[in-house]
Amino acid sequence: MAHARPIATTRSATGIPTPRLAIWWILASEVVIFGGLLGAYLMHRIGHPEWAEAASHTQTWIGAVNTFVLLTSSFTAVLAHQAAEKGKGKEAAKLLAFTILGALTFLMIKSYEWTIEIMAGYTITANTFWSFYYTAAGLHALHVIAGAIIMGFIAVDAYRGRELHRVEIIGIYWHFVDVVWIFLFPLLYIAK
């Protein structure tokens, strides 16, 4: 990358550029946050056969469509990274915009789904299954929102050819959000 960067972002004892090392640290803590939540869910799920009934009311096809949306947005995010590697800022920005579009689609579908559930009386207090459902999917949705906002800033910079290395960093984060959903989907929607 041709532009000057502050020294702190290039110095690295690990051989990993500092921003990328930072995102790995974040993800290492996210592993424990999401993992702890899903682990607790899984243990309760196995100890409570009656949750199968509650779980059978989740909208599998909506979850499936959202899985497709996130997978696709991950694909555009990695293409944005590829474009940034080649110094093509505008193309990277465009691909990030597609990724943001994916995030918004995901959130819209999620709101639709939650509206159905809440109208049917399946609220966060209905029983412990639904508490886990809203907590896990809600925490994940917050990550989608945060990612989309940050990606917006990075896309604007990238469009002007600035801070292209950040495209990779937000991409790594975004793929992690995708990976979390890859596990949430079978746990919340498929296991009946």
């Binding site: 690990t14 990993i16 290492a28 592993v31 424990v32 682990g39 899984l42 991950s74 995010a77 995708d178």
Partner: peptide, 30 residues
């Protein structure tokens, strides 16, 4: 996704250890 999109497969080993220790802690907890 982790190997090919996040490029963890080509990352320095220390990043893998970092994530692995998180996972191990998690498994211990569970």
């Amino acid at each position: 996704v982790v190997n090919n999109f996040m490029h963890l497969a080509w990352e320095q080993r220390i990043a893998k250890w970092l994530l692995a220790s998180s996972l191990i802690l998690l498994l211990l907890f569970v």
